[in-house]
């Protein structure tokens, strides 16, 4: 393995981490708002608050890690993506900011304004939508070079079916991931009512997720034939992903082994995500930027990797501690303990 591939693998893994923990968080906000609307809030709020409270800041750092890392390993991305993404990413950031801060304001400060709850829920869906645009753009065809400067063609972007399918996928995947995870979590909390409601949501969102995912591959055939070809060479990964999807849905239907159901879901997304990533190789942005011509110098690459390894030695034990205390601690999950400052 060369340094370029090592670098992008690390970043892709953290992006995957962000997508999973972010989706749980965004989806939870949406379900919470939705149950307020339908008068079932009582059922969900407690479970959701228990899970989110100690971890929301950590979720955000995954994102920060990804975008700081990509500038470090592939500095040229700053030039291409930085120039073109000003508007979509800024909107994403503003939404993230509103969402993150109101979460803290609500949870620790003043509770109970319904308007916030809705805004919070809605922002949670718009964030994946606005950030997923980056993936669409990376497929090429939306950026032109004008006087040596990259320019984003908004008309082309917003009239493309590919864009909208990816937006729909990002939203339904968010809700699906979140619902499956929370089903498991609620079950661990022995909250029967919440478990059954969340299980219902999970099953509802399973189908749209898999259909749009398939549809996107199909649309790539027209939009980016080269990428489409590559995807086919990775068919075993997508097959495994699909089998895992079936497994999750089966367990949910049978109402058993929710932990396994979530494990399979994580596997499903991992295989699809890494299959997609591998087939995208070597391009960071079709057709302008590959991981090779944008890679940083060897001295920086090596020092980043050393820093990364040292960082992991710090990070992994801390994350395990966090999970042991809150995610896997029965007393905490069931709400028998409250030690909040």
């Amino acid at each position: 393995m060369n340094l370029e591939i090592l670098g992008i693998s690390v970043l892709w893994t953290f992006l995957f981490g962000y997508i999973v923990v972010g989706a749980i968080d965004f989806g939870a906000g949406f379900f919470n708002a939705y149950t307020v609307l339908t008068g079932k809030q009582r059922i969900l709020t407690k479970v959701i608050q228990r899970y989110l409270s100690p971890v929301w800041e950590v979720t955000n750092v995954f994102l920060v890690f990804f975008f700081v890392g990509i500038i470090g390993f592939f500095p040229k991305t700053a030039f291409y993506y930085g120039t073109t993404l000003l508007v979509p990413v800024s909107i994403g950031v503003v939404l993230l900011a509103i969402r993150g801060s109101y979460y803290a304001f609500e949870t620790y400060g003043a509770r109970g304004h319904k308007g916030y709850t809705f805004m919070y829920g809605l922002a949670g869906l718009l964030i994946p939508a606005s950030l997923s645009i980056v993936l669409t753009i990376s497929e090429g065809g939306y950026i032109e070079m004008v006087n040596d400067n990259p320019v984003l063609d908004y008309w082309e972007l917003f009239t493309s079916p590919l864009t909208w399918s990816i937006v729909v996928l990002s939203i339904s995947a968010t809700l699906y991931i979140s619902a499956v995870f929370l089903t498991w979590y609620a079950n661990k909390a022995r909250d029967v009512e919440a478990t059954s409601l969340l299980r219902k949501y999970a099953l509802i969102w399973a189908l749209p997720t898999i259909i749009t995912a398939g549809g996107i591959i199909f649309e790539l055939r027209k939009h980016n034939p080269e990428h489409f070809e590559n995807i086919q060479t990775f068919w075993p990964m997508f097959l495994i992903s699909f089998i895992m999807f079936i497994g999750t849905v089966y367990l949910l239907m049978k109402k058993k082994q929710y932990g396994w159901a979530f494990g399979l879901l994580a596997g499903q997304f991992a295989f699809a995500f890494f299959g997609y990533g591998a087939s995208h190789y070597p391009y960071l942005l079709y057709p302008y930027l590959t991981i090779y011509d944008s890679f940083t110098n060897p001295a920086m690459a090596i020092s980043l990797i050393v820093a990364f390894i040292l960082g992991l030695c710090l990070l992994i034990p801390s994350l395990i501690l966090l999970m042991r205390l809150f995610l896997f601690n029965k007393e905490y999950v069931r709400g028998n303990e409250d030690h909040h400052a």
Binding site: S53, P54, V55, E57, V58, N60, V61, V64, F65, V68, G69, I71, G72, L304, A307, F308, G311, L314, L315, S318, L319, L321, L322, L325, F326
Partner: peptide, 17 residues
């Protein structure tokens, strides 16, 4: 810049705890 993200991680995790 990259090391800073680890500092953030470290802080965020233990603040939660």
């Amino acid at each position: 810049l990259f090391m800073e993200t680890f500092a953030f991680f470290f802080e965020a995790i233990f603040l939660g705890i």
